[in-house]
């Protein structure tokens, strides 16, 4: 979230001025904090309370205040395979997106020259169309009678004989839909790299591969971390791709949450699932950032 750090305690400044500026700082923080409180903190608490509600005896579909922690264990017991599948799909999609985005971002940052702005616009342009429409478009692209599927089928590369309504289609959709969130941070990180460092590596007899490994890649790590997070987190909670491009066996945890909210009207279970998902993502993200050792990089 946005963290505006008040620039208080500027050394050497007279005390009263510093105090006033710090108060101004807090004042400037107010809209952000109010926003967070109204649109994050309060819903967050409500969601948590909902996740602990218990059914009203004798009234199906009604829930009241309670401390029913078993909502969590029940939800996990029933839906753990979907958590695993979401993790798997989102993980693969993130890796694929990284593999696709890195060369592209590299090219835009170092080689695109005067086409750079245009290429960046092209990366963002698909986002002007609705997320949903773009996903629908993939149904056409991957259609059984379409070019891609028939070509791959002619080569006998598809075990199920189709792409649409399989896990492959879901991962492809996730990769595509979140790709810009990978490209942009990567580009931002790569673009900041001073090309003279790479030249210097060459001058010191580093092969291009070594130069990339020792100079470019480490310096682009903040972009890699940001990009993978921005791709993985929304992909993990996504349900549109699974609903439109998947089949019966490809549901993700987002689909379970949605079905519980809308179809079963089982708000406690849906809330519990949302919380487990949030907690899971938080743990994953912290572990990841720790391991990547990038706290000082970012």
């Amino acid at each position: 979230m946005v963290a505006v750090v008040p620039t208080s305690g500027v050394s050497g400044a007279p005390a009263p001025v510093a105090q006033r500026s710090s108060r101004t700082g807090y004042l400037l923080l107010f809209p952000g904090i109010a926003w967070l409180a109204v649109f994050f903190a309060i819903p967050f608490v409500t969601l948590f309370l909902t996740s602990l509600q218990q059914p009203v005896p004798g009234k199906s579909g009604r829930y009241m205040f309670g401390l029913q922690f078993s909502n969590y264990s029940d939800a996990l017991a029933e839906y753990w395979p979907l958590f695993l599948r979401s993790f798997l799909y989102a993980g693969i999609a993130t890796l694929l997106a990284l593999a696709i985005a890195y060369p592209l971002a590299y090219f835009i940052a170092f080689r695109a020259g005067r086409w750079r702005s245009l290429m960046l616009v092209l990366v963002i342009a698909p986002s002007f169309a609705s997320f949903l429409l773009r996903t629908y478009a993939w149904k056409t692209i991957l259609s059984d009678e379409g070019f891609i599927t028939s070509t791959l089928n002619a080569l006998h590369l598809l075990p199920e004989g189709r792409i649409l309504n399989t896990g492959i289609a879901v991962v492809a959709g996730l990769t595509y839909n979140f790709l810009p969130f990978m490209i942009l941070p990567l580009y931002a990180a790569l673009e900041k790299i001073d090309p003279r460092l790479i030249e210097a590596a060459g001058d010191l007899y580093a092969s291009p591969i070594t130069a990339f490994r020792k100079v470019t890649w480490p310096l682009s790590l903040p972009g890699v971390v940001a990009g993978t997070l921005l791709t993985f987190i929304p992909a993990m909670g996504d349900y549109i791709n699974a609903a439109l491009l998947g089949s019966t066996g490809n549901r993700m945890i987002g689909n379970a949450i949605q079905i519980n909210f809308i179809q079963f009207r089982d708000y406690p279970t849906a809330s519990a699932l949302s919380f487990v998902l949030m907690a899971g993502i938080l743990v994953l993200v912290f572990t990841y950032i720790r391991r990547a050792g990038t706290e000082d990089l970012v």
């Binding site: 909670g237 439109l244 949605q258 949302s274 998902l277």
Partner: peptide, 19 residues
């Protein structure tokens, strides 16, 4: 975190027109 964007929320109608 499960509904990141308005489009996704909007998409409910598209995907869940089960009835």
């Amino acid at each position: 975190m499960t509904m990141q964007r308005p489009e996704m929320i909007a998409a409910l109608a598209g995907t869940m027109r089960s009835s």
